[in-house]
Nucleic acid binder design. Structure first.
Length: 585
RNA sequence: GCACCCGUAGCUCAGCUGGAUAGAGCGCUGCCCUCCGAAGGCAGAGGCCAGGGGUUCGAAUCCCUUCGGGUGCGCCA
């Protein structure tokens, strides 16, 4: 973990507690709730006094006496029942800022290996708003993990092996039975040209799904086709391969337009070869058992508040499920990557599924040293509070959502009179960056488990707590620094003198704490808050002190340096959230 | 029925490893551009933290319970 001002302070206060013969855990320091009393506070004396049956005020006083000898502190006071308030010398802030390069730079990968499983697009299905949260949150988390020094591998985990594949095969068969893929006597080679386009698949899938739901005969056909595909029927495999290839091309485009990156493009089908041996192994060791024709693993534990259904590996009809591929994927990842942690950024509604898979994998000894963790999230709802739908009641495609956001951003730019003189390409780029920032920040700034209401008009507003506001704040600093450059005004040594500088410095220096907290709770809204507070503090500073007209050149140089550092911290935070900052807007 | 998530300002949301006077944005009121980008800043009004019990010196935070909303519960993903 990278050190921060807060961790340094905690170390000092801990030392004071230890010197009093108390547990260092009591020395935890936090940002003060009462800024007029101090910049930081420690409430440890209260808890420590309780544990040691001491008087909290006299204990706090002893800690105070020890802390007062430290040259870092300009003031250590006690208020209330024993709160310790701390103010730092301004030179401590200046010194920390001078050394802040270390806290704002990415760390070398020394903290272990993490696999982040997110996105989860399905073959043949257009990506829709349901994929948005997983993609945005997962991407933000992988960026944070990489930056903080974890060897991180993201995997899109394509949905390419379940019953939807069987449904599609039967739908194509119904429409074009003459194709060689359906002729059992055909010995190949099968055509190289795909018989369907991405658009075809997107049309066919909902039809096939509806048919399956409405007609038990069709459903049975789909089930059979899925089983035959999984058992290796050549024509089906060849046709399925086309589905995959056509789909992946489209899916890659979608993720690229979102600015979301994956290290690995694996799918459920990739672990198919592992499934047979895995089932054999589980049966041989008596971990899996037959129950009513299906192969299951009982994963209930005595401590369960309610009965946990078993992990189902093979259905009565011989088909496997995503539970099966998920367990096999753990085997695959442990074998190829041997991670310390695997994060599954998937809708909270699948929580029980993951609980079963994790228990099964651990019971079978497949997880290696990896901690398996489901990072769930809530739904994105429409204005009515129900999961987001288009006006027509359908599912909104991700592509269309992005287009809407771009158009809305464009509208705002026109309203604000920005970019009228920009070249068309730059205008389009800025509209895209602003639209994406609006969507991403709105999504990420809510705690991931809460359901939130999607309101594009509100998200794209340039005022208030929005992505575009943060971009604006960063762009404004860039503009200031450009102007300084033109006027040959150079940044210099930072000296903290004014209240707004102090507040801004403290905000910048909180970056490592925001980073670590985001990772610890796997929740990017922490970093969103950091970025927003930082931008606000800068705005206050900027409004209170006119920099370029400052006649004291040392002071001007200091303030320029503070502005430059703010920009660096803000851009870094936004980058971790997957938000781009234009040069101007 | 059982389990999980949630209920905080008019609206949208933070805060939840217990700590002082519960925060932000929008909206509302009033100020601030002859000066670096006002998409901004400053100040203000607005809350029995769903209700009720309990633990504690101290509860929005932990426990129990009621009500209200969402989700899930063996052969879909």
């Amino acid at each position: 973990m990278r050190p921060s001002l807060l961790t340094d302070l905690t170390a000092k206060v801990r030392a004071a507690f230890v010197a009093e013969g108390l547990d260092p855990a009591f020395g935890r320091v936090q940002i003060s709730d009462r800024p007029e009393l101090g910049q930081f506070q420690s409430n440890g004396a209260l808890a420590a006094a309780k544990a040691a049956k001491m008087n909290p005020l006299s204990l706090a006083s002893q800690i105070q006496t020890r802390l007062e000898t430290d040259e870092w502190f300009s003031n250590v006071s006690i208020t209330g029942p024993g709160f310790i308030n701390i103010k730092l010398m301004d030179w401590v802030l200046a010194q920390a800022l001078a050394a802040s390069d270390a806290i704002l730079a990415p760390a070398a990968a020394t903290r272990g290996k993490v696999v982040v499983d997110f996105g989860g697009p399905n073959v043949a299905k257009a990506m829709h708003v349901g994929h948005l949260r997983s993609s945005i949150i997962g991407d933000a988390l992988q960026r944070h993990l990489k930056f903080a020094g974890f060897d991180t591998k993201s995997d899109v985990h394509l949905g390419d092996w379940g019953k939807p594949m069987g449904m599609l095969i039967t739908e194509v068969k119904l429409r074009r039975p003459e194709l060689p893929y359906f002729d059992p006597a055909f010995t190949g080679p099968y055509p190289v040209e795909p018989p369907v386009t991405m658009e075809d698949l997107e049309t066919l899938y909902p039809i096939a799904a509806a048919a399956s739901k409405a007609d038990p005969v069709r459903d049975e056909e789909a089930r059979t086709a899925t089983a035959e595909l999984q058992q290796g029927r050549a024509g089906y495999r060849a046709l399925w391969r086309h589905f995959i290839d056509v789909s992946i091309a489209g899916i890659k485009r979608e993720f690229a337009s979102l600015g979301v990156y994956f290290d690995l493009w694996k799918g459920e089908a990739d672990v198919d070869p592992l499934i047979g041996p895995m089932l054999t192994d589980l049966k041989a060791r008596g971990i899996a058992e037959l129950d009513d024709g299906a192969l299951i693993v009982r994963v209930g534990e005595p401590s369960d508040k309610k009965e946990m259904p078993p992990l189902m590996l093979v259905k009565r009809d011989g088909g496997v499920l995503y539970e099966t591929t998920d367990v096999a994927t753990i085997i695959d990842r442990v074998k190829s990557l041997d991670p310390d942690l695997v994060l599954y950024v998937v809708d909270q509604r699948q929580h029980e599924h993951f609980e079963k898979v994790f228990r099964g994998a651990i019971k079978a000894g497949y997880a290696g040293k990896a901690v398996l963790e489901h990072v769930g999230f809530g739904t994105m709802n429409g204005a009515d509070g129900k999961p987001f739908k288009t006006r027509a009641g359908g599912v909104l495609k991700l592509y269309d959502l992005i287009e809407m956001a771009k158009a809305e951003a464009e509208k705002r730019l026109v309203e604000a009179g920005i970019g009228a003189d920009y070249p068309p390409e730059e205008r389009a780029t800025v509209a895209r960056q602003v639209g994406l920032a609006a969507i991403k920040f709105a999504d990420l700034s809510n705690y991931r488990l809460t359901n939130y209401i999607f309101d594009l008009e509100r998200f794209t507003k340039f005022e208030g707590k929005t992505g575009p506001y943060l971009q604006y704040a960063a762009v404004r600093v860039k503009s200031l620094l450009r102007k300084a450059m033109e006027e040959q005004a150079r940044p210099g040594a930072i000296a903290i003198t004014a209240a707004e500088e102090r507040d801004l410095a403290l905000a910048i220096l909180r970056f490592p704490d925001a980073l670590e907290e985001t990772i610890k709770v796997r929740a990017p809204n922490v970093m969103c808050d950091y970025a927003y507070t930082l931008a606000q503090r800068f705005s206050s500073f900027y409004a209170a002190h006119h920099i370029m007209s400052e006649s004291d050149t040392a002071l001007r140089a200091s303030r320029l340096a503070l502005a430059a550092l703010t920009l660096r911290a803000l851009e870094t935070a936004l980058e971790l959230l997957g938000i781009e900052v234009p040069e101007r807007m």
